[in-house]
Design a protein around this nucleic acid. Structure first.
Lengths: 114, 114
DNA sequence: TCGTTATATGAACATATATTCATATAGTAT
DNA sequence: ATACTATATGAATATATGTTCATATAACGA
């Protein structure tokens, strides 16, 4: 039986969805989000935590900010970023559990007894 | 208070997560997934339903198949695809609800009374 | 076997974007 | 005002990939 709860999304809506997935499709941005998972951080702190160059961190944060995934706030001379929408972690958890499922499935092809 | 339920993901794990988001970051692939939401379809049926060229549909389906998001099965002369992991729709629904939230937030900046 | 239909794939092209360097902007302190 | 620190941004480059055309592969029917 085919599921059909939601109406089809328009091309523009699909483009919007695709755009947000694209924001999450870059490991450097996921690194930054993961760092922010523990709490707010300044740009410099994220540069140190991630090993990425400062210019790169700034640009990736700008992209995350444009997508309303992070919020920023000036703190003296620095700028502190924090997660604006915890939904990103729900997305990541779904993807992670899928990867575990796929991995278990692949494993089963070699070790059916387990 | 900072949330911290999950251990940090390794670079390889983040790359895997990013890869799956990348698969979902292309409108043409979302169109195909949305078409398959109503039930299994052959390549030709998806060409007609999507308006995309046949070569393009085949390539995008191959990418979806590599990610184990769709399954394929030969049916006579054609090949029938179907959703292999309904989790993709959970992902899309999360993103959609976020977009609604953001849109309502943007709206409120112009119509605070609503 | 031969022709037809359905799907996949290689080559070529255009486009998008991540990364880096250099520099600009903004805030702070002396 | 000047020097210093923190962050953002423009230019340049490299890389990835979506799209299309042409063609290959595979199944089916006569």
């Amino acid at each position: 039986m085919a599921a059909k709860k939601h109406p089809a999304l328009s091309a523009a809506q699909l483009a919007g969805v695709a755009r947000l997935f694209a924001v999450l499709s870059e490991p450097s941005r996921l690194v930054l989000l993961q760092a922010l998972h523990a709490g707010p951080l300044t740009v410099n702190e994220m540069v140190e935590a991630s090993g990425l160059k400062q210019a790169n961190v700034s640009k990736q944060l700008a992209i995350l900010h444009d997508s309303h995934l992070v919020r920023r706030e000036r703190d003296g001379n620095s700028i502190r970023y924090e997660i604006a929408d915890p939904m990103v972690f729900s997305l990541c958890n779904l993807v992670c559990s899928k990867m575990v499922r796929d991995a278990q499935c692949a494993m089963a092809m070699f070790h059916p007894e387990i």
